[in-house]
Design a protein around this nucleic acid. Structure first.
Length: 774
DNA sequence: GAGTTTGAAACT
DNA sequence: CAGTTTCAAACTC
């Protein structure tokens, strides 16, 4: 073995390492000789003796500062001291405290069976404290592993353990890379790379046998302490939460990727790994020491490394190539890299093109980046939310001077029910905030900001003519929502203007002419708005109200079943039969209700007639089977089917301020079945007012549909007409009842937008209704 | 892309 | 409050 010279860690002669069990192990690889422990893990790359040489030949790479594999764990100085006191070369042992989290990684190569045990322990913050006092702590090793199985997300008290029993064969390769001293100073940057490669089959079998506890207990001496690398503030923040630094962090992942590449991708598979760490800082690239345990085979990763930690899917994707990779021996492609080779992969330019996985990471990361532009003094207008099918990009003002940049997510499902909820107290703002496609409600402050996270960067992409784009997006179905106004005469100061109606400023994509609905004209906008509100307090109220609950429950199907939501005022369609977007109900993805004055309603989401006709039917089931027939006697095949769904929905106006919202549960909507005749009977129009009264009484904040109870308390009559004389009523108001009814449905008005102008305080359900219907 | 249709909004 | 006009989106060609 000529290793010593070539094997340097961070320029540190490997002589010390030779004393280490690892070294012995390596030496003994062929024939397999036991290695009791590894104080410091270095790269083993060795099939047989030759392998050993190779191990140390490549170790440079792995040892090299630039090695990308790393196990990060912060730990207390005390620990560090202990480690050093143990005679461990600092280069081999890095300790640090990061965020109070203590991570220790121990890798043990057992003498027998050439077991290689890698215990990765993530010590909680508490542990970190303990670690100082507990010698054994050193054994616990925190490995930042990006293995899919590895839980990328930090967790307390979770040990990430994997034990690998492999027969030592020439094919086996274990790389342990430590990176050195320079970085020790900087706990955040110190990384140690460890790569262990095993035959795939062995890995599967053995990897599954993870026994960290044993490792810890047995190999106290053999500890590798790694400092957690904290690439960025973000990672730190994450780590703080858990007291553990994880590779889940983009930076970390990037590091892993890099490291992995450095070790594994001689054969050109690096392509897989390239592009890794866009987020990775150059500094990290050069100076971080990593310990990487790479499990190359995914099966291995999944099966062979029972970490007891599960990584969420997203994390998986991001993490997949990271750390622990046990490469099947057969996979010779993973050659230990020479340092010369390593650098390229290692020091991948930040702006390097990420691979698909990396991209995901990046994208996910970036997705959050957009920051909504909130016009000064202008608050979120939830009306935008109300326009369900009309997603508006979240307003975002580009930094470009004089240019408004408003974007809103186009995530809306084609028929997703409009979310209602508008708090007029908000100033016009954030134009195009859209309801969460998922139906999630915007809550208070969250609404304003969280939505932003949803921003698909719409605004950025809009360069083509707004109109075309709009159509394009609309046609596309899901992205239907991205709209812009095209006003020519209204100056975007009337409700004709969708933007204005939504309470958002017009943005660049808009092709409006003479637009005054811009931040520049804020006063004008507000004034006009007030005027309109004075005329009709509900003018900016969400047109469609629905419950978020529904979305949550229904998930993807929610778009199919918006029925629980209803247009607050109802449509007045004459010719479109409520089958086109001319119909606001249809457009909002909700069924028509009693409030509608439409003629020949065939609303696929729920016909007004359907309700009425069904109302008195004794056997709803029959109805469902037959389908609901409209007044004109035309059967609407869609209706029954849809009815199930949308009836199950609850009305949920989404307002940013939950406190201001009250929810109404309409009794039978959650059943998911069409209204039962008995139930519907209550909805008889003659009884509308009564029903509405009931509905008023059943406002609830929570969604317990079962809670739907008819409140017998006296109710004041509620006007169904809007201030303007137009009927405004909550659809399904009359549904409050009948649990006894089979298939009772619930409409839940989870939140009704409070209109500050009307009621300063969070309106009670009654208040809401009164305000709505008065 | 222009023209038509449609229904809400605005107006009288 | 009803009728009419205006408006812009939706739709059609």
């Amino acid at each position: 073995m000529d290793t010593p010279e070539r094997s340097k860690v961070g320029g540190t002669p490997i002589s010390k390492f030779e004393d280490s069990p690892v070294f012995n192990f390596i030496n003994s690889l062929s024939p397999i000789q036991p290695v009791k422990s590894v104080h410091s893990i270095h790269t083993f790359h060795s099939p047989g003796s030759a392998a050993i040489s190779s191990v140390f030949s490549s170790p440079h790479v792995s040892f090299h500062k630039e090695s990308r594999f790393f196990i990060r764990h912060p730990f207390p100085d005390s620990v560090k001291q202990d480690a050093s006191s143990d005679g461990l070369d600092e280069s081999n042992v890095h300790s640090g405290v990061s965020n109070g989290a203590v991570l220790s990684a121990s890798i043990v190569l057992s003498q027998e069976n050439c077991n290689i045990t890698c215990s990765l322990n993530e010590a909680s913050v508490d542990l970190a404290d303990d670690s100082s006092t507990q010698p054994d702590f050193s054994q616990s090793v925190q490995v930042d592993n990006g293995s899919p199985n590895h839980n990328t997300s930090p967790f307390y008290g979770v040990k990430l353990d994997f034990k690998l029993d492999i027969s030592c064969t020439p094919s086996e390769r274990v790389k342990l890379v430590q990176n050195m001293s320079e970085n020790t100073k900087n706990p955040h940057t110190t990384k140690i790379g460890l790569e262990v490669q095993f035959p795939a089959d062995q890995m599967k079998e053995d990897a599954s046998e993870s026994d960290w506890d044993n490792l810890i207990s047995d190999n106290t001496d053999d500890l590798l302490i790694f400092e957690t690398a904290t690439g960025s503030e973000t990672s730190k923040s994450e780590e703080k939460d858990y007291g553990i630094s994880l590779n889940s962090h983009p930076n970390a992942s990037g590091l892993h990727n890099v490291s992995q590449d450095s070790f594994m991708d001689d054969d050109g598979e690096t392509g897989e790994h390239d592009g890794m760490s866009p987020t990775r800082s150059s500094a990290c690239q050069e100076h971080e020491n990593f310990v990487d345990l790479n499990l190359k085979t995914e099966a291995e990763l999944n099966n062979g490394v029972p970490l007891g930690c599960k990584v969420d899917s997203q994390q998986h994707r991001g993490v997949r190539r990271r750390c622990l990779v046990f490469e099947a021996a057969g996979v010779s492609k993973k050659n230990i890299h020479n340092n010369s080779n390593a650098p390229p992969s290692i020091s991948l330019p930040i702006n390097a093109k990420p691979n698909s996985e990396n991209r995901q990471l990046v994208s996910s990361k970036t997705s959050k980046t957009p920051v909504p532009y909130v016009l000064p003094g202008i608050g979120l207008h939830l009306n935008a939310l109300a326009r369900t099918s009309k997603d508006r990009p979240i307003s975002q003002k580009t930094k470009t001077p004089g240019r408004e940049f408003i974007s809103r997510p186009c995530s809306m499902r084609p028929f997703s029910p409009a979310i209602a909820g508008e708090n007029q107290s908000f100033k016009l703002s954030d134009p195009h905030q859209s309801p969460d496609p998922n139906g999630s409600e915007l809550h208070d402050s969250q609404a304003v900001h969280s939505d932003v996270s949803l921003i698909p960067a719409l605004g950025i992409e809009e360069s083509t003519s707004p109109k075309k784009k709009r159509r394009k997006t609309e046609n596309s179905g899901e992205n239907e929502g991205c709209r812009r106004c095209n006003c020519k005469k209204s100056k975007c100061l009337k409700l004709y203007c969708e933007c204005f109606a939504a309470g958002v400023y017009c943005v660049e994509p808009c092709s409006c002419q003479g637009c005054l609905n811009k931040p520049v004209h804020e006063e004008t906008v507000l004034t006009t708005r007030k005027q309109i509100e004075s005329r009709n307090p509900l003018a900016f109220a969400p047109k469609v109200i629905r419950t978020s609950e529904h979305d949550q429950e229904m998930g993807e199907e929610s778009n199919k079943t918006p029925a629980s939501a209803r247009h607050k005022r109802g449509c007045n369609c004459k010719k479109s039969n409520c089958l086109k977007k001319y119909c606001e109900c249809y457009q909002g993805g909700v069924g028509c209700s009693f409030s509608c004055r439409c003629e020949g309603c065939k609303n696929a989401f729920g016909r007004k007639d359907g309700f009425e006709e069904i109302e008195f039917e004794e056997d709803l089931d029959a109805c469902e089977k037959e389908g609901v027939k409209s007044d004109d006697g035309k059967a609407n095949a869609n209706v029954p089917k849809l009815e199930h769904n949308h009836l199950s929905e609850s009305i949920l106006p989404v307002t940013p301020f939950p406190s201001c919202r009250s929810s109404v549960k309409l009794p039978f909507l959650s059943s998911g079945k069409p209204p039962r005749s008995s139930t519907l009977s209550l909805m008889n129009r003659s009884e509308n007012q009564q029903a509405e009264c009931k509905s008023d009484q059943i406002f609830h904040d929570d969604d317990t549909s079962e809670d739907l109870r008819v409140n017998s308390s006296p109710c004041t009559a509620v006007k169904t007409a809007s201030p303007n004389g137009k009927r405004v009523s909550l659809p399904l108001n009359g549904f409050g009842l009948s649990p006894n009814l089979k298939g009772g449905r619930k409409l839940i008005l989870k939140s009704i937008p409070s209109f500050p102008s009307l009621t300063t305080d969070a309106p009670s359900s009654t208040q809401i209704n009164s305000s709505v219907f008065s």
